[in-house]
């Protein structure tokens, strides 16, 4: 019993408190059933006042009745008490019996409780163990997960890093490439521009040269044309000093004159006609062999100014 208490102090204490409460109930329930009797003897009432003989007599009678009644009541009260005590004893025995039973039950319950507790404890231990195990497992798992996660993360990180590195490398390469390309492009552009410039310069030079050649050709052929027209210009007789006439002459390749128009008349019909005739008669006019040069000679303005 002590071991048990020792073993289950909380349960034991609880049990004790419950018992005490039960006992308390028994005690208090009795007192409550007989208010102001047996435990406290009735106190005589003293009255000093005599009112009259009849009254005293009635009184005395009354007292006498009362005393008798009282004796009866007392006797009844005692009997009741006796009965009550007996019932009470019975009840108590029964209660004792019940109590024992209860005790037995309680003990049994206690045992059961202990067993249950043990079982519970055991279960608890198991549970705890389980829990611990689970925790441990969890921990392990967690750890593992963490580890894995870490690994994963690490891997991911590594991957990321790697990717980043690759990316960066790629970016770098790309950048480098771009830079190179840019540089190359810039270089190419510069070269191109330089080439273009050179080409432009060359072209310019070539054009200048061409232009110069063209101008030379123009100049020399202008001279030939002039000579041929002069050879064909029959100056009108008489005084022609101060007269001048400009004609616009259109040529076709080959130098044939196809149209002559007086664009600035001398005011002298015959002078004008001599001029027009000279240009028509001089047809075909000498032209450079190069057909490209023809554009220079497509339209000619002849300014006839005798005597210079």
């Amino acid at each position: 019993m002590i071991d048990l208490v020792k073993k289950h102090p909380l349960a034991s204490l609880l049990s004790l408190v419950l018992h005490l409460i039960l006992i308390g109930f028994f005690i208090f329930s009795t007192s409550f059933n007989e208010p102001g009797s047996s435990i406290v003897p009735p106190v005589p009432i003293v009255k000093a006042t005599v009112i009259d003989d009849s009254k005293i007599k009635a009184e005395a009678e009354k007292l006498k009745n009362q005393a008798l009644e009282k004796k009866q009541q007392e006797k009844k009260r005692l009997d009741d008490l006796k009965n009550k005590r007996l019932a009470e004893e019975n009840k108590l025995a029964e209660l004792k019996k019940e109590q024992a039973l209860e005790q037995q039950k309680l003990e049994q319950h206690k045992a059961e409780q202990a067993a249950s507790a043990a079982k519970l404890k055991k279960q608890q231990a198991i549970d705890e163990k389980k829990k611990a195990d689970a925790t441990k497992q969890l921990l392990i798992a967690k750890e593992k997960a963490a580890k894995e996660k870490a690994i994963k993360e690490k891997a991911a990180e590594e991957n990321r890093a790697k990717a980043q590195a690759i990316k960066e490398k790629a970016a770098k390469e790309k950048l480098a490439k771009e830079k190179a390309a840019k540089e190359k492009a810039a270089k190419a552009l510069a070269a191109k521009e330089q080439a273009a410039r050179e080409r432009a310069l060359n072209q310019l030079a070539e054009q200048e040269e061409q232009e110069m050649r063209a101008q030379e050709a123009v100049a020399s052929y202008s001279g030939l044309i002039r000579q041929k027209v002069e050879r064909n210009w029959l100056q009108p007789p008489g005084d022609i000093t101060g007269l001048s006439c400009t004609v616009r002459v259109r040529l076709i390749p080959g130098g044939d004159v196809i149209d002559v128009q007086v664009i600035k008349s001398s005011g002298n019909t015959y002078f004008d006609r001599s001029v027009e005739l000279a240009t028509r008669k001089a047809s075909p006019l000498p032209l450079p062999n190069d057909p490209a040069m023809f554009n220079y000679f497509r339209t000619l303005d002849f300014y006839f100014r005798p005597g210079g």
Binding site: I225, A278, L300, D301, P306
Partner: peptide, 11 residues
């Protein structure tokens, strides 16, 4: 405007 000036002629 290729302009050619003619100052001489034959009489």
């Amino acid at each position: 405007a290729l302009k050619i000036e003619i100052t001489q002629g034959i009489s």
